[in-house]
Design a protein around this nucleic acid. Sequence first.
RNA 1: GCCCACGUGGCUCAGGGGUAGAGCACUUCCUUGGUAAGGAAGGGGUCACCGGUUCAAAUCCGGUCGUGGGCUCCA
Length: 606
Amino acid sequence: MDRPDPTSHPLYRVRHSAAHVLAQAVLELYPNARLGIGPPIEHGFYYDFDLGMDGDRPRTFGPEELDEIEQRMKRIIGENHPFEMRSASASEARDLLASQPYKLELVDGLDRGEVGEDGQELDAKVEITFYRQGPFDDLCRGPHVESTGKIPADGLKLMSVAGAYWRGDETRPMLQRIYGTAWYTRKELRAHLDWLEEAKKRDHRKLGKELEIFTFDADIGPGLPLWLPNGGVLIDELEKLAREVEFKAGYQRVRTPLVTREGLFLKSGHLPYYKDGMFPPMEMQGEDYYLKPMNCPFHHKIYDSRPRSYRELPLRLAEYGTCHRYEPSGDLFGLMRVRSMQMNDAHIYCSEAQFEREFLAVVEMYVGYFKLFGIAEFSMQLSTHHARGLGKKYVDNAPLWLKTEALVRDAMRAGNVPFNEVADEAAFYGPKIDVQIKSSIGKEFTLATNQVDFAQPASFDLAFINERGEREMPLCIHRAPLSTHERMIGFLIEHYAGAFPPWLAPEQVRVVPITDACNDFAQRLVERLHDAGIRASADTGNERMNAKIRRAQLFKIPYMPVIGEREVEAGTVALRKRDGTQIKDLTVDRLVELVVQKAAERASEL
RNA sequence: GCCCACGUGGCUCAGGGGUAGAGCACUUCCUUGGUAAGGAAGGGGUCACCGGUUCAAAUCCGGUCGUGGGCUCCA
């Protein structure tokens, strides 16, 4: 923790205090409401409420009720109640909490189990503090502003209502969560709301539709994307990139089927540990077949298709494999979370002595990719197991978990790669390094991943013959630096705001003839570009050139050679680039040369 | 999966108990115009689906499906 303490930030206090004011406002308007928790968050704050039952369903807030609550908050701010802190011992705190009928932790029946849990938490603390403003008193570690009047009323806005499980546990009752945002001034609030609007403009779901990259169809099913021709180009280019990079790095390409007998996934451990994430089985002649959620067992079988010598290691098997996972309906999110995906997958089988070098080579590979794409904002996370999940979520072998986690940690340190460690996020078969990125609207996703697997080589009884003629088990590294096509392209759409670099752009050149008289010339130019391997077309419609240029701009096409009578006569074009700049009197030869060169340079600008 | 909201032509959206609207896109015609929308005419929707209420439902009610926000982090 070398970051500055966030609680010292003045907006943290404002937001935290606003959460208390929100709770007070809700209690004034809904005296029977009970409180969950209410922390400050990135752009504001939230508070959880239980409104009791309405017949056999929980009572909820409608969006129209947010206005009323917000007005009440502003009134409380106007009343300028001071925030008064006081300390209490554990037993005093428990008595105080018991005197607050609205605190959820202590309500009879609903959450008795929590009383003990919280009691223990209370005992463990040296000092317990309460904050009171006006009639509202809350267990809270603070800090707050001096009084409610210090919260800028016109920098405050309630944003949304959402359901949230008490303590994040889906077996617990669902509470009503109100989100708000808070800033110093109306102007800052405005800027934040504008930023949200801007972020929506580069949302891959919106751009993906506008740029005709992908679509979904209800007849096909949720989470099952259809790639339109423009998306097909992006996929082809990414695969071409992966093929080249992996070839140089000594990978071999393989292909494996989409379905398999149940036995394979029993052996791999997927069925015991991963069943919920899989589509249900298909029965055929008394036998169950499954759609694969991962490629690893197939690659293990390829490894195991004949005896292996230490001389063959590291053996690197790569495949852009198509996998299907039954993600919960509420988790689906555009291209970022889907049920059908094509993964930039590969498995590296190596000896323990080779592990560090191989693991770091993979880390370097994705750092190289990120550099190529200009992705600067990402973080690496070492995801480890949790002792409580052994046997349920994770393969039950504590010593191997500790050993492989240490291997990864050491490799990362040896390579001087910064990372942070998060418990209880590992794959069921081993620890992993996840590369975390944010979507344009701020949602965090794992883009690339690099995982160690000690479990499956054992369950598949994989082996190689070492230098001494003995059978030895290899380690397996699973890696997917380019993620899945779905998530990678979803991310790249947002990263480039749809303006892909020339090598990736679905259409690289749109020729704009000014009059019909120039159409033949334009058509011949397109043919030349096609011959050179460039994705080009001509807009030979009968609109004015302005409309043609506008259309090409909207599709964010990098190059727009404009052709009028002058150009036809001179055998040149007037090249307009996507950024609006122009190069006049460019000969056709020079144009083709320029575009071919730019399209070949993956890191190039316009 | 759960809570909330939304679902009107290909797209963006207005309307709203009494025989469906706009702009863009599409088709045709006119226009041949130098760097982000030339003009006119035309075609296109059982208002997501199923059921209920009503003399009458796109509109009200219920269910289903789909989409979005949230439910993990953000101490």
